[in-house]
């Protein structure tokens, strides 16, 4: 399998994720965009690991770490979003600043 396939898929997913982070009004969906970008990174890591045939499985282990960190990140992020919602009764990012 050509190495370029997963790399280009990763680039496309990263672009879509970036668009989501910058364009979605809802804070939870912004976090989803972040998850997409992290997945693009994971794809890269796994692809290079497979291509390199690393004895330490560096790429795949780091992917595991990333997934773990992503889980932690989204846990914290959603907690913050909930706190925000309780504070200003909205999670629309362009309306959060208005009321202050």
């Amino acid at each position: 399998m050509p190495l370029l396939y997963p790399l280009l898929l990763a680039a496309a997913l990263f672009g879509v994720g970036l668009y989501g982070v910058l364009a979605r009004r809802n804070a939870v969906l912004m976090l989803l965009g972040v998850e997409l970008m992290l997945n693009a990174v994971n794809l890269n890591l796994v692809a290079f690991d497979a291509w390199f045939a690393d004895a330490m499985h560096t790429g795949q282990v780091l992917t595991l770490f990333t997934i773990t960190l992503a889980a932690a990140e989204i846990g914290l992020g959603l907690a913050i979003v909930l706190a925000l919602y309780r504070a200003v009764r909205t999670i629309d990012v362009d309306r959060v600043g208005e009321d202050v």
């Binding site: 050509p2 879509v16 291509w51």
Partner: peptide, 28 residues
């Protein structure tokens, strides 16, 4: 920005890794 980022990354990848193959010698 998303399109630019995707194209930029893709172009970099094409420039750097064109023709490389994944052979699957070590199964994870």
């Amino acid at each position: 920005l998303g399109v630019v980022a995707a194209i930029g990354l893709g172009a970099t990848m094409i420039a750097g890794f064109r023709g490389e193959e994944i052979e699957g010698r070590r199964i994870g």
